[in-house]
Design a protein around this nucleic acid. Structure first.
Lengths: 105, 105
DNA sequence: TAAACATATCGTCAACTCGCGATATTTCAA
DNA sequence: TTGAAATATCGCGAGTTGACGATATGTTTA
């Protein structure tokens, strides 16, 4: 019976949320997160899965790392990326439920 | 023990999901959805809550209506907007959990 | 019908995004 | 130490987004 209190208009928090959402709002980046929810992968593996060039993959990954979604470690020549933001699973799950589950308009 | 089957790369579905996400990825539009989750409101009321001009509010509302998030009816001079996509509550709830609950970086 | 109100649309401009080729950096192997 | 592999960064150009003032449309009241 907890009435969700209606938040004040916190422009800064809303802007931060919007920035992070926008970071996710790209077909390739959603795909990358789906892949990385399965485990850690190198830039090359991710690029191949998404069918894009390595430099583009690197750029997308950098954006998502910058807003805290991903982290990376270098191992030898390769750099492994992985999910760093635990809420991503829930968020992507919502998106899958609505947009990627059963093809509806 | 259901291993979530790893989806094929469906560019069209991913693009649609990304388009809709991008529609939500704006501080004012997130706020509008939060407000409309409480009930239906007119353009003027929404504009005032968000602290923006009516024409801008109208534009934001149009974008969200176009991708199926909102619907509207005219009643007299006023136009009422409301949530049309049931999944929005869940999605915004995820976003609030992560970004709007307790102020963390 | 004219004026006022509520909303919608248009045009413009600055800012940002994306893809892409070129180049740089880091690491390993020969 | 030279070259190749893996990744990152840069610069450009086309396209998109957002804010905003101006104008248009639809509705009610005088």
């Amino acid at each position: 019976m907890v009435q969700r209190k209606f938040r004040p208009f916190d422009l800064e928090a809303l802007t931060h949320a919007a920035d992070c959402l926008r970071t996710l709002a790209h077909p390739v980046r959603i795909r990358m997160v789906q892949l990385l929810l399965q485990g850690r992968y190198t830039v090359g593996e991710i690029a191949e899965d998404c069918g894009i060039a390595e430099n583009q993959a690197s750029e997308h990954l950098r954006l998502m790392q910058r807003c805290g979604f991903l982290s990376s470690q270098r191992e030898g020549r390769c750099v492994y990326y992985q999910i760093a933001e635990p809420h991503l699973e829930q968020i992507v799950s919502c998106i899958e439920d609505r947009f990627l589950a059963n093809p509806k308009s």
